[in-house]
Amino acid sequence: MLIKQLSVFIENKPGRMSEITETLCKNRIDIRALSIADTTDYGILRLIVNKPEEALEALKQDGITVSLTNVIAIAIPDVTGGLDKAVKALSSQGIEIEYMYAFLNPKSQSAFVILRVEDNEKAIASLQAGGIEILKSEDIYAI
């Protein structure tokens, strides 16, 4: 039920981002979604890719600080109030969202949302109870 997200440490300096994209390109890894958390001195790049384990090794090989994080991916219908329903399913159970980001799936009428929470199991149960569709890794990697 969980999706593997790559988290990469990037210093705020020109050219850092391209080092990462170059490694991914060289290893024929496709990016499905990304988001960046930035602070004044550094950023954390979060990536969903088609081959997370391979990407992890390739990035490590190139001396990049990277780790794998388990995140939840959900699908929500592209209608008004879709996201609200999902978020309420979590907040009603007192679950905090550390961070989240979303992208549209060109092949369906739904949006995919990546969620990072403290307790994945509890969050999945709450989402399922709220009627939210939880995505499997194949759904994401194979887009």
């Binding site: 997200q5 988290s7 440490f9 958390a37 602070t39 550094y42 954390i44 979060r46 490590k60 600080t65 990277v66 780790s67 994080t69 550390e98 961070y99 990072r116």
Partner: peptide, 15 residues
């Protein structure tokens, strides 16, 4: 230097 064992995906933890 940030090291693999001190790195986290969360800004909160790094801060």
């Amino acid at each position: 230097e940030m090291t693999a064992n001190t790195f986290s995906d969360s800004v909160k933890v790094i801060n």
